[in-house]
Write a protein that binds this DNA or RNA. Structure first.
Lengths: 223, 223
DNA sequence: GACCACATACCGACTAGTCGGTATGTTACC
DNA sequence: GGTAACATACCGACTAGTCGGTATGTGGTC
């Protein structure tokens, strides 16, 4: 018979540990370059545990993205920038908050969804969908504040709240890529600064609030 | 004058064909997921040829990025938007040109450097450097026009030409990611539109040209 | 212009190791 | 004693990279 070595099944949550491990490793090395064995080693579980909890490596990826969406929803919903009463102030404070997160190692502040969709968009439909849901879901959260700010400020613009919310995500995702290329967060901070300035110009901050906003020549409301 | 150029005993380089193959496959599936065998099959050469021309898969990656930089330099240098005499017009026409390129399959308009750096920034120093050189080199090209436009318009701003040039790249890279997530170029076009509007607001296009530009709050009169 | 030394540009079988995934056991707790 | 939660051993496919070989060209020497 065998020894008891370390069976302890009740270490609780091999599944969670695998998900956490995927956050670390995939953001560091990408999805394809991260092997199941590495995931297991990082999580401190065996391969048997991995395939007990997930049908395949791809299934883990989708589960990781779903969990990522949920965690980031909770994280941002409970962030202090919501305290501002004015929706435009909330938007600007959101950007300041994002900027404040750009500290330390790139792998720690970059986005799992953006990283994964880059590799998987053509070849793994499920991953693409889960990543899209994550990014678009986050944008939808912003969209409410943007729409409110537009309404409150009587904005009639050639751009729409959804398109601006997605533009926020584009800038952030692009900022992560530049940070990876340059090996540090400074360039990402600078880019978010430009985005913030864009918002200030769109809503004419600093020249008297409650003002009309223009697009190209301020007409219509969509895109 | 001797015409040594290429030995070309084998009608136009297996090397070039491998580089071209890498443009296609790596943008489609990512770097790690693209195998040497696939690269060879796509290029129509054998594995022997691959390792005759490149020391390793990583060496091909670096060579591909160098070639990518060179091709894109030539491509953008000979693009029609340079015809504009005014630097600000050139910048806006550059953005229109980039927008016009956002057609068809995502793999065909996305950026090799942005794709690769995402996977390799932590684990492959040479690839990170080559990708940074590609992105930063392209930004440097823009920087000249931005600086000229600032000078010509008497701009005194809280932002710099280099940071704005890099912000252009951030928006484009982010736009590619969103296009991958959503499965089409429309969202990318919308994001470049937002960037164009930012430039128009920064340089106050449409309210009388040759005007000053503001950062956070406008300063000084001129011209 | 015959000969030779050397170089370039492959070819494709082979290898050692890694990959995602499976099959079967073991344990703890209801 | 059934079942969830693992562990261990293993598999075949695939991986990057190697190596001995060949076909063709090039430059120098006589």
């Amino acid at each position: 018979m065998r020894e008891k070595s370390q069976p302890q099944r009740a270490r609780r949550g091999g599944r969670e540990k695998l998900l956490d491990a995927s956050f670390v490793l995939i953001r560091e090395k990408g999805y394809s370059a991260t092997s199941v064995d590495e995931l297991c080693a990082q999580a401190g579980v065996t391969k048997g545990a991995f395939f007990h909890h997930f049908q395949s490596k791809d299934a883990l990826a989708v589960a990781a993205l779903d969990r990522w969406s949920e965690l980031s929803r909770v994280f941002f919903e409970s962030a202090p920038y919501h305290e501002h009463g004015d929706p435009l102030d909330r938007i600007l404070a959101y950007l300041d908050f994002r900027k404040a997160l750009l500290k330390g190692e790139v792998a720690q502040f970059s986005c799992l969804a953006g990283t994964m969709v880059q590799e998987a968009y053509e070849t793994h439909a499920g991953i693409r969908e889960a990543a899209d849901a994550s990014i678009s879901g986050h944008a939808a959260m912003l969209e409410a504040d943007i729409a409110a700010a537009m309404k409150l400020n009587g904005v009639r613009a050639s751009w729409s709240a959804p398109s601006l919310a997605l533009h926020f995500q584009a800038v952030l995702q692009g900022a992560f890529i530049l940070a990876k290329a340059k090996g540090g967060p400074e360039v990402a901070v600078a880019s978010v600064d430009h985005l913030r300035r864009y918002i200030e110009l769109l809503f004419k901050v600093g020249t008297g609030r409650k003002r009309r906003v223009t697009g190209l020549q301020g007409l219509r409301a969509d895109t």
